[in-house]
Computed example of a mutant assay.
Amino acid sequence: MKLVAHSKMRENIPFGKHVPMRIFRGYDRKKTMIIPHMHEAIEIIYISHGSLQIMDSSNFSILQVGEFHIFNSNDVHSTKFDGVLLKGIILQISFDLIKSLVPDAAYYKFYYSKGSEEQKKAVIQLMKSLLLKSECEKKFDFFKTYGDLMYLLNILFNDFSERISTKSVQSNQKYYKRIFKINSYIEQNYANKITLTTLSKQVHLNPEYLSRFISKNYGMSFYRYLTSVRLNHVQTLITTTDLQILQIAEQTGFANYAQFNKEFKNRFGCLPSRIRQRN
């Protein structure tokens, strides 16, 4: 499912002016990947056509038609699609809003599997209702939107949540800081040569441990993640600038043009010149 083009680990979500949420249709064809990221929001993805591979806190699964998945705030997650057509709805709810309503919200985790079939249908209907309201909004319709959102949060807390311990909350905070530190360094230095050893020195972790940590929590190797970050920037530069493709390859940290073409085709299913022609 395509989100706004980015490669930052902590996604900056443009919430609505009156209601701190964001909802939109997901529509993808062929090969699409959103690299591992996190944000201060609960995100729900509902699939109406096709199937989507998801990674949520190192757990992998396939989201099928008629199902939705709840990504908890600040959990590292990614999605991958490699089919013909994918359709769905993506809803993101500000965690600041949730904490203002439930001060100890950090002690709750949400899981699709906990809800009954009846409550799952209710969540899907509310997502469809919120989407329609966002697409046909009149001046004061945000009051109705807020009502639907409060109803949805009520269902999530009552039927899809599980309370976790103080120890788990503290462990999660340590985990978030480590993830953020790793990705901040990669994001700031992707255009330069980065090795696992140089990164390990920056985050004060043993290289072997760091390698295992990234593989487990990002669902891919250090090299693959670094390449994915670079390719996100490549895609943005190809579609928003007139820079020559060779210049883009040089500015995004690739060792040579052959490697650049190989990795780009592996990710997007075509050469960068094809993307440039389409745009």
Rank of each mutant, 00 (worst) to 15 (best):
K31E: 12
S113Q: 13
S58G: 09
F81L: 03
F143R: 13
H6N: 11
Q92I: 02
Y27F: 15
A255V: 15
P20H: 11
F254T: 02
E162H: 05
Q277K: 14
L246S: 13
E263W: 08
R274N: 06
T166D: 12
L130W: 04
K121A: 06
I13H: 01
Q188Y: 01
R274H: 11
L199P: 05
G66Q: 09
T240S: 12
R178T: 11
P272V: 12
L101S: 08
F68H: 07
K114F: 08
A258Y: 10
A5P: 12
L271P: 05
L210K: 03
S165I: 02
I179L: 09
L3D: 07
R276E: 07
G219C: 02
N158H: 00
L210E: 01
K201D: 12
F142H: 15
K114T: 11
A258H: 09
N172I: 07
Y185P: 08
G269D: 09
I194D: 00
A258V: 15
D56V: 13
F60C: 04
E263M: 08
I245R: 04
A191T: 14
E11H: 14
I13N: 04
A122R: 09
S113V: 10
L86T: 03
I62Q: 10
K193F: 10
I45D: 10
L196N: 11
Q53R: 09
K177V: 07
G16E: 07
N12P: 03
H6M: 01
M150W: 05
G147E: 14
S171R: 09
K109M: 04
L152D: 02
D159M: 00
I182Q: 03
V203M: 00
I238K: 04
G147T: 07
H18T: 06
M150I: 05
K181W: 07
Q277N: 10
Q53W: 08
D242Q: 11
I44H: 01
G115N: 03
S116V: 01
F140D: 15
S57P: 08
I23Q: 07
I45C: 06
Q235I: 04
